Amino acid sequence: MAFQKNHSLLLFLFLTLLGLGLIQPSDGQSYMYQRFLRQHMDPEGTGGSDGYCNLMMQRRRMTSPRCKPVNTFIHESIWDINRICSSPNIQCKNGNMNCHEGIVRVTDCRESGASRSPNCRYRARTSTRRVIIACDGYPSMPVHFDR
């Protein structure tokens, strides 16, 4: 429990430093970083159930104006993800060379197909697996979940 509180405190501190301008990403990078956090980060969550996906997808604004077909929530600290950004570069799906890979705990949420926005319904699958994340800027920060 104390471990999770420390991670939350560190995330809060990092975001505070970012907000105070002590860490200076570009405007585009900052937007993409904030979007990455909103869409993919849930360090204190454990995922695992369809109800988790239904709730999180709605809370994180991915069910309107249409249901986002697939989304992955990462259950690691932002520090672990930033560590992935410092691993060797690999090629992204789009051909860019700013992707990095690591192994993390995730919940993959896949739309069930039998729902309509904003009441989207999802199936959950939780696992520990290899992910690929695009990172940009200095310091290098996650900006896109590639796969």
Score class of each variant (00 low, 15 high):
34 Q>D: 09
50 D>V: 02
62 M>E: 13
58 Q>K: 14
67 C>W: 06
74 I>C: 11
62 M>S: 05
38 R>D: 01
72 T>H: 06
41 M>K: 00
41 M>L: 15
59 R>F: 00
33 Y>I: 10
37 L>P: 01
57 M>L: 15
37 L>H: 06
34 Q>F: 12
72 T>P: 06
68 K>H: 04
46 T>K: 04
58 Q>D: 07
32 M>F: 12
35 R>H: 12
55 L>G: 02
33 Y>T: 14
75 H>E: 03
46 T>D: 05
41 M>F: 11
36 F>H: 01
50 D>I: 06
75 H>I: 02
69 P>V: 07
66 R>Q: 03
59 R>G: 03
49 S>E: 12
75 H>N: 09
32 M>P: 00
50 D>Y: 01
32 M>I: 06
42 D>G: 12
43 P>K: 07
53 C>T: 06
66 R>D: 06
59 R>P: 05
32 M>W: 07
41 M>Y: 08
50 D>M: 04
54 N>T: 01
55 L>I: 09
63 T>L: 00
73 F>H: 09
51 G>T: 04
60 R>C: 06
68 K>M: 06
59 R>Q: 04
68 K>A: 14
44 E>F: 04
34 Q>K: 13
38 R>G: 05
45 G>P: 09
33 Y>C: 14
63 T>I: 07
68 K>C: 02
34 Q>H: 14
57 M>A: 13
38 R>M: 08
52 Y>F: 05
36 F>A: 08
40 H>T: 08
43 P>S: 08
64 S>Q: 10
61 R>N: 10
40 H>N: 03
39 Q>G: 13
39 Q>S: 15
55 L>H: 12
36 F>V: 01
56 M>A: 04
48 G>H: 08
66 R>G: 14
41 M>V: 11
34 Q>G: 11
69 P>W: 00
37 L>Y: 07
38 R>N: 15
44 E>G: 10
69 P>S: 09
67 C>G: 03
41 M>D: 01
33 Y>K: 00
44 E>P: 06
